[in-house]
Simulated scan of single mutants.
Amino acid sequence: MSSATKTLALLSHFSADRPEIGLSQLCRIAGRDKATTYRHLQALETAGFVEQNPTTKHYRLGPAVLQLAQVREATVPRKLGAQLPLSQLADVTGETAHVSVVSGTTLYALASCESPRHGTRAIIDITTFPLHATASGLCALAFGPDAMLEAALSQMDRFTPHTATTAEALSDLITDARATGFGCSDRSFEAEIHSLSAPLYDQTGLFAGAVSVASVATRVSPEQERLIKTELIKASRDITRNWGGQLPANVTSAWASGSSRHYETDSTP
Rank of each mutant, 00 (worst) to 15 (best):
R117F: 13
P145E: 03
N242D: 11
R121Q: 12
P145Q: 01
P63T: 05
R18S: 10
R187K: 06
I29K: 00
A30V: 08
V102P: 05
G209I: 02
I174Y: 00
A82Q: 08
R178I: 00
R32V: 06
T175A: 07
A69G: 05
A198T: 06
C184F: 06
V220C: 12
T204M: 09
A198D: 01
H40R: 10
A43V: 06
G209A: 04
A164V: 07
V213P: 05
R28A: 12
P269F: 06
D176W: 04
R241S: 09
A169I: 01
G144L: 01
S87Y: 11
A111T: 14
A142I: 04
L110W: 13
T127L: 11
A43W: 02
C113V: 13
L8E: 05
L153M: 06
A9Q: 12
I228T: 12
Q246D: 07
S188W: 00
A90I: 04
F207C: 03
L200S: 02
H262F: 11
A142G: 07
F189D: 00
E223V: 13
L153W: 04
L107S: 13
P19L: 04
R187M: 03
E168T: 12
S236P: 13
A35L: 10
L61N: 02
T105N: 14
C113S: 15
A82Y: 06
Q88E: 15
A147F: 07
S87H: 13
A147E: 14
V211W: 05
R18Q: 09
A191K: 08
R72W: 07
S257M: 07
R178F: 01
F207W: 04
S115A: 09
F189S: 00
G183P: 01
A210F: 03
D202R: 02
E168N: 07
I29G: 01
T75F: 11
V99L: 08
F129V: 12
P222M: 03
R241M: 08
R187L: 02
P248M: 05
I29D: 02
Q246F: 06
C184G: 02
H194A: 10
L8A: 12
T37R: 02
S188E: 12
P222Y: 11
Q155L: 08
G48S: 04
A111R: 08
A254V: 04
R226H: 12
L61R: 05
I126L: 11
E190F: 10
Q88D: 14
V251C: 01
E95W: 09
G209K: 03
D17R: 15
E51R: 14
S112C: 11
I123S: 15
Q70K: 14
R18H: 09
A256F: 06
V220W: 07
S259H: 05
T7G: 03
S103R: 10
A256V: 04
R72T: 09
S87F: 09
A254C: 04
W255V: 02
L44C: 01
A217Q: 13
V213G: 03
L41A: 03
T93W: 12
L10M: 01
D238Y: 12
D91V: 06
I29V: 10
K57M: 09
P161C: 00
T180K: 00
I21V: 05
S197Y: 02
A152I: 02
T165G: 09
L232R: 05
A82K: 06
V220H: 07
G62T: 05
T218N: 15
P130Y: 11
V92H: 09
A30W: 04
R241E: 11
Q246L: 09
L23E: 10
I239C: 07
